[in-house]
Design a protein around this nucleic acid. Structure first.
Lengths: 236, 236
DNA sequence: CGTCATTTTGAGGTATTTCAACGAAGGTGG
DNA sequence: CCACCTTCGTTGAAATACCTCAAAATGACG
């Protein structure tokens, strides 16, 4: 049996005050979503949808990590966002996806035809409200990223990224040990932060040499000095 | 008599395909909003709400231009976004506004208590849908800004800004003449683009010397070579 | 276990940021 | 209505930071 899709608790409270009843999907809503959706289990590094193609579906990431990126005319790619379980994908404009979405790890995705979703919005006001919350959450995330990008210094951007990943931390075995999981490649992180891979590498080693973090392996970083990290992350 | 608030046509169509009927507010919905809202007419450079205060209302900008910014610990300010008629303000997290909102020009704002708004969401599905569209629009805008910020070169950022302002152009007398209105100060633009005012000034004069734009006065720029401007604005 | 892509390290170029000073604009009060 | 003052905007020269180019080392994958 396949688990029902869930929408992480992003209470409207986060946005605007609300009552508890709206904070989580109830069973009926989960069933509604599950019945509308087609489930896709995708291997790592595979494309879910491509920029510019007809936006026929909205997606709910149930499991795994994904990324959204845009192709630049030089052929380079710019990573716009990383996505974690319960995040919504499928941002479009004039019926076309604005990004390309691909998996970073193995992922489980619920694909929901937009017409079907809109139809159920009409019947279930709270369901639509949840999507409003999700999009608002994405907007806050994007604004946070904007704050990070406004800074010119690489170590500061990297510090904000690590803190952001710590917040978004998918709960894993090693999470409690103060370890932060960075499932994506260095190249992807650099692209996301608007840095070259070389600058990112240098920034990481500066943080390491400064006794702020330690890499146990390429995808796990331990925060040794949280206050120093936060001081770097806090925009001056 | 006071005009009813309007929500600019940001069809969900822009996001996901939809039928025409959802593209605009109907008279009933406009009346609903107008009856819920308290109208505020504010002079230029006055604060609507402050970062960190209780987020009791959502705002609809009916007229004028506003900006949202955050205070940094150094005392500097970072402009997060500029807002134009029909834009929604009031982004919050855990019941507190995340930005400070202030007028750039004289502005007319509709203030809607969140509880009242949520109440009417329950009765009017389409109204909620419009807000979903608005927030999605803000998200796209934010991602576009993110693309601009990823670039390191000032002229490129400035070119993207001018094109963005041309799109957002409030329809004015001089709009048709190829003039773009930049109502905000140089300092605000620089802060928004993550540049120093000096760099912004140099970037503007480079664009001017390159025959790409001409400033008729400090707040009006004429695009002389649209293709060159676009070439600069298109991320490489 | 070998091949290939990714990541790291090094040296030089170029852009923006600083720091400082001048000129212009807008708002206030006489 | 004009003068003053304050704020904003522009211009110039030096410093810092990142980017580019090149090459070695590490790790991933078949």
């Amino acid at each position: 049996m396949i688990a029902s899709p869930t929408i992480r608790a992003v209470p409207f409270d986060d946005i605007w005050p609300s009552d508890v009843s709206t904070e989580l999907l109830n069973d009926r809503q989960r069933h509604t979503l599950a019945s509308m959706a087609k489930v896709r289990i995708m291997p790592a590094r595979s494309v879910l949808y491509e920029e510019g193609t007809h936006a026929g579906s909205v997606f709910l990431l149930a499991n795994g990590v994904m990324k959204c990126y845009r192709e630049l005319r030089s052929g380079k790619r710019r990573v716009m966002s990383f996505l974690f379980p319960s995040d919504v994908l499928g941002l479009a404009e004039r019926g076309r996806y604005v990004n390309t979405a691909a998996t970073v790890t193995t992922a489980t995705v619920y694909c929901i035809p937009v017409e079907t979703l809109k139809e159920s919005f009409r019947r279930d006001v709270q369901l639509q409200f949840h999507f409003l919350c999700k999009v608002t959450h994405e907007l806050r995330q994007s604004q946070r990223q904007l704050m990070a990008m406004a800074r010119r210094d690489a170590p500061g951007r990297v510090a904000m990224f690590i803190e952001s990943m710590r917040r978004n931390a998918v709960l894993r075995d090693d999470h409690r040990a103060g370890l932060v999981w960075l499932p994506m490649s260095r190249t992807d992180i650099a692209s996301f932060l608007g840095l070259t891979p070389e600058s990112l590498s240098r920034a990481f080693s500066r943080l390491t040499r400064g006794g702020i973090v330690t890499f146990t392996d390429r995808h796990h970083v331990r925060i040794d000095d949280g206050s120093k990290l936060h001081a770097l992350a806090d925009p001056p």
